[in-house]
């Protein structure tokens, strides 16, 4: 049994340690809380979230040896997403929630990137129905374990389709509150190799921007740039011209562009 003296001494010591800690803590200069800087930093992190998921997915899937992430913090904030699995393209007309963000031909091989956006359910019953509808397309948000967690949130799934055999791979999964909109020059991007195998240069850029953004400029490592604007009569006549897409149920607008064959992704900026 511990003696009373030992207990007294022990408690005194811990009490004194607490006083010393409080004294030492006073040495720090508190300064003014940089609330606006914190909010800006938080917004940047928020904009990057889906990119982290996509990158993780690719790493887990082991599809490629190299990828570039814009502004990835490296803090490992996110858990590992389920491995990206090739998914069969449902035959027939495009489902209502699907939009092709970009398509083209690269070295003779066709490619396409599309996004499925699921409207935010208003209540748990709607959320259950939405999850059931997603399941028919092999989709389920990584961050959602119960239907109630999906209420008020928009689910996005981004896919890359490559080659004559139309190999389809899910490259991103993101769930956002429906009022969680980006503003001004905020953006999120991820750059990946175009092909899921035997390709290392991150040339395929998928991004999300504010609904007010009118032009995004992608900069490539060789110093050249590609401007991505809003759809117009000219761009509609040429499907190979990348445009910013406004998706009805998503809080953000989306775009995809592909770097020239000889270079790779450097960065993007909202220029208008």
């Amino acid at each position: 049994m511990k003696s009373a003296d030992w207990e007294t001494s022990h408690n005194m010591t811990q009490h004194d340690i607490a006083l010393l800690l409080a004294d030492a803590a006073d040495e720090v200069e508190i300064g003014i809380a940089p609330a606006q800087a914190v909010i800006r930093g938080g917004r940047r992190r928020k904009a990057r979230r889906w990119a982290v998921v996509a990158a993780t997915t690719v790493v887990v899937a082991g599809c490629t040896g190299a990828l570039a992430l814009t502004g990835l913090s490296g803090d490992g904030d996110r858990g590992v997403s389920p491995a990206s699995r090739p998914v069969a393209s449902p035959e027939g007309p495009e489902p209502h929630m699907r939009t092709t963000l970009a398509s083209g031909t690269d070295a003779g091989a066709p490619w396409r990137v599309y996004i499925d956006v699921w409207k935010a359910p208003a209540d748990t019953a709607e959320a259950k129905a939405t999850l059931a509808a997603m399941a028919k397309f092999g989709e389920h948000p990584e961050d959602v374990s119960t239907a109630s967690e999906l209420v008020g949130k928009v689910a996005h799934f981004v896919y890359r389709v490559t080659g004559e055999e139309a190999r389809t791979t899910q490259i991103a999964d993101m769930v956002l509150p429906e009022d969680d909109v980006q503003s001004g020059g905020e953006y999120g991007t991820v750059s990946l190799p175009l092909l899921p195998e035997n390709d290392t240069a991150p040339r395929l850029v998928t991004g999300q921007v504010a609904k007010t953004a009118r032009e995004v400029t992608c900069t490539w490592k060789d110093g050249t740039t590609t401007k991505v604007g809003r759809a117009s009569a000219a761009t509609e006549a040429n499907a190979a011209v990348p445009v910013i897409h406004s998706l009805k149920d998503s809080p953000d607008d989306w775009f995809v562009c592909l770097a020239p064959k000889s270079t790779e992704f450097e960065g993007i900026k909202v220029t208008k």
Binding site: A25, V28, G31, G41, G42, R44, D75
Partner: peptide, 29 residues
């Protein structure tokens, strides 16, 4: 800031830790 200072032992490291923490909190606010 005081807690971060005791954890890191350095003014700038404490500021970085608190700012980084609060940015993460903002994402999940």
């Amino acid at each position: 800031m005081r807690t971060a200072f005791l954890l890191t032992g350095e003014q700038h490291a404490a500021e970085d830790l608190v700012q980084s923490t609060l940015e993460q909190v903002y994402v999940a606010w």
